[in-house]
């Protein structure tokens, strides 16, 4: 490669990087509007996508499983998710689920930037489904029986 071609290629990289930054800047700045200082934040405890061996296995066909909870809070619920072909099956696990008085419900809200929230009720076993959950940044809010919580953002 000639010196000119090397410089031209480096310049091309820099210009492409700037285009990426420009395209992402507005969304990055708008992220600040999602600030919720008082949320009980649940961290990602497990993600099958980062399992040892995920790198060397074909994982395209296997469901991705994720688990959120509050590591230092024994009373907190945990949220288990399984995503297969863009459909989500989830379970809210905690003592309070299914033991509350009739009429009281626990809900899970799927939040994505730029989209309306999707709220679903969990059944007596704590299960819920979100068909066509799609890809992109997402977080989940659990509200109702026991303590509410908001998960970290992740990319589906």
């Amino acid at each position: 490669m000639s010196e000119d071609d090397e410089l031209f290629a480096a310049l091309g990289e820099a210009v492409a990087a700037r285009a990426d930054d420009d395209r992402r800047r507005a969304a990055a700045k708008a992220a600040f509007t999602w600030r919720t200082v008082d949320a009980e934040l649940a961290e990602l405890l497990h993600d099958s996508a980062l399992d040892a061996g995920a790198a060397v296995r074909s994982v395209a066909a296997a469901p991705r499983t994720l688990s959120f909870g509050r590591r230092h809070d024994q009373d907190s619920v945990t949220l288990e998710l399984e995503i297969t072909d863009g459909d989500l099956l989830g379970q809210v696990i905690g003592e309070a689920i299914g033991t509350t008085q009739p009429g009281a419900t626990t809900t899970v809200t799927v939040q994505r930037p730029g989209d309306a929230d999707v709220e679903v009720a969990v059944d007596a076993g704590g299960f819920f489904t979100v068909p066509g959950v799609g890809t992109g940044p997402v977080r989940f809010r659990v509200q109702g029986a026991g303590a509410g919580m908001t998960t970290d953002w992740i990319t589906l």
């Binding site: 999602w34 600030r35 940044p137 970290d152 990319t155």
Partner: peptide, 11 residues
Amino acid sequence: VSQTVWLRLVE
């Protein structure tokens, strides 16, 4: 990924 990183940083 970029958007997730910034959203997560906010929290």
